[in-house]
Design a protein around this nucleic acid. Sequence first.
DNA 1: TTTTTCATCGGAAACGTTTGCACATATTAT
DNA 2: ATAATATGTGCAAACGTTTCCGATGAAAAA
Lengths: 341, 341
Amino acid sequence: MNTGVNLKELAAELKLSPSTVSRALNDSYEISEATKKKVISMAEKLNYQPNPFARSLRENKSKTIAVVIPERMSSFFSKVVDGIEEITQQYGYHLLVYSTHEDVDREKKIVNLLMNGRADAIIMSVSSQTSDISHLTRLHERGFPLVFFDRICSDIPTTKFITNDYESGFEGTKHLIQQGCRKIAFLMLSKELSITKDRYRGYLDALKQAGLSPEPQLNITCCQEEEENIESIRKLLDGPNRPDGILSSVEKLALATYHAVKRTHLRIPNDIKIISFFSNLSIASLLNPSLTTITQPAFNIGEECAKLLMKKLTKPRQPDLPNQVITIPSNITIRSSTIVV
Amino acid sequence: MNTGVNLKELAAELKLSPSTVSRALNDSYEISEATKKKVISMAEKLNYQPNPFARSLRENKSKTIAVVIPERMSSFFSKVVDGIEEITQQYGYHLLVYSTHEDVDREKKIVNLLMNGRADAIIMSVSSQTSDISHLTRLHERGFPLVFFDRICSDIPTTKFITNDYESGFEGTKHLIQQGCRKIAFLMLSKELSITKDRYRGYLDALKQAGLSPEPQLNITCCQEEEENIESIRKLLDGPNRPDGILSSVEKLALATYHAVKRTHLRIPNDIKIISFFSNLSIASLLNPSLTTITQPAFNIGEECAKLLMKKLTKPRQPDLPNQVITIPSNITIRSSTIVV
DNA sequence: TTTTTCATCGGAAACGTTTGCACATATTAT
DNA sequence: ATAATATGTGCAAACGTTTCCGATGAAAAA
């Protein structure tokens, strides 16, 4: 790899000292406009690119932020990362993207690796297996800027961005009830997750408000194996205590539900109605029947995470990230999976 | 940000010189086993983490590789990145991931930024707008390790990983013909793309072999706006010269086709049969009717890219990346969108 | 005994920046 | 006239590693 000219060579070419050239390129007030012009044009001519590591070493910042997500093949997380990139790229920041694959051990390894300062901050959504959060508290206690989104850690006093999980769970359930459902199942990834807790609370409160009592056997906790999830749901559908409505708290379980229904004699929405948190609108309307969705503002969530961090990292003396939860509401789009025509 | 102890402090604690400690931690033969043990245990006790920038500056390598893709919300590219990460993570490498959003200007900016050595190598799939490749040739001529996958640049003499685009296009088209199609449309993102060229050649040859003549008006070049694509396809379907089969060269256009068909009175597969390059098997079988797919080995392609680079970067004196195209075959899965029962 | 070798370790340079400080020269105030 | 102040630039240290080159002492060979 032929690395180009460095500051010293550029300075030699200009018959100036490296310090002057550095200051000129950084637009320091101490340098005359004349030399600034000369330096800049010569830098362009020789295509000078400052060495990022020398700069990072000296300034103790990397212009890089790490994004840690549970999986890549998810329209929600893809859009969040797109939103983050949209902002950070404007500030010249780079994105290290890691997937934990819903594995807490991988998450710990990644977080521990990040502790050496390779990134200036972390934006993350925890894995569904994460219950011990010592790796995250340690990070935060060291003063490492950390922002959570979607799947958050309430115990860590920093800024979190979520959607209105409780209300969405509540409204989604209420919608099912209004469509005549009396036995509504709740599908989740893990009981530990902040999103399942909040969405579940909304679900329970909607049931209560309608005078319905929750039935434990209608709660299904899923795993990472799609086939296994499909079979769990199918068993529920084929069982004696079959639900007439399903609220899926994550995208992939809605798809598993459609697969499961295909294995039964049931029809959506006549026999069973489905609503799900879902970010891929194009797919939602192509499913048969089209899926009623609670659409999280994924791109927007990413943007907000990034904006907050950019403010913290690019302004001189910023305070710590405040301990608060910022909620950006979802939209419910009613489609055929909950409406009998 | 409270950065932990550094080498000098660790050395002071041990009453040793930094050089000795460094060598001990790097398992140098010059250091006795006794002191190695002492150093390692003290390093663990103080949780010493070497500064990655100091190391990168000194060694002139970053243990980071950049991945440049046209879009994130694509099961194909998500899986490729997963495959890359699977390998690189084993070697302690980090991944900078950039999306060009199919925009060649963004692609150029990203590539130019990468020229400063922030990453040790680049794995990329070019945007659909890329015809001028000067930014990539410049990169390659500087000796920067560069690997292409899927959407490749034939003119740049380096290693490329693709699937058997020609054969898949050929076989896909042949399958449609065998199912009785006589007027087969070809959907593409851009005529410039390597994948459309190869897949189109396969399509043409299959037509020729069947004695069918290609009709230019059956080729549709799409854009980035989904709605616009849907309407282009709908017009084709509603027009006087309506095809009875469609080969879509990319995933998103298959979805657009399903949307378009929904806006017509046509039925799949009776009136129109569809086959597409497609990586999301779960979705393919959920579409109505389920979609016949040509499935690219996305994860595997990512793995192979990464393996090649890891060999080049971690072994001492490796030759340049050879100028060759490595093909990993796709699988055709026949589903309902091409079979009339 | 003297010389060589070997096993361990330390000093210092180097990687490419940024920046505190000093130092000229020119301008203004006294 | 001299002294004070801008204005523009250079020197050198620092960031935290790795590694070249010596240095030391002990063991082996002469």
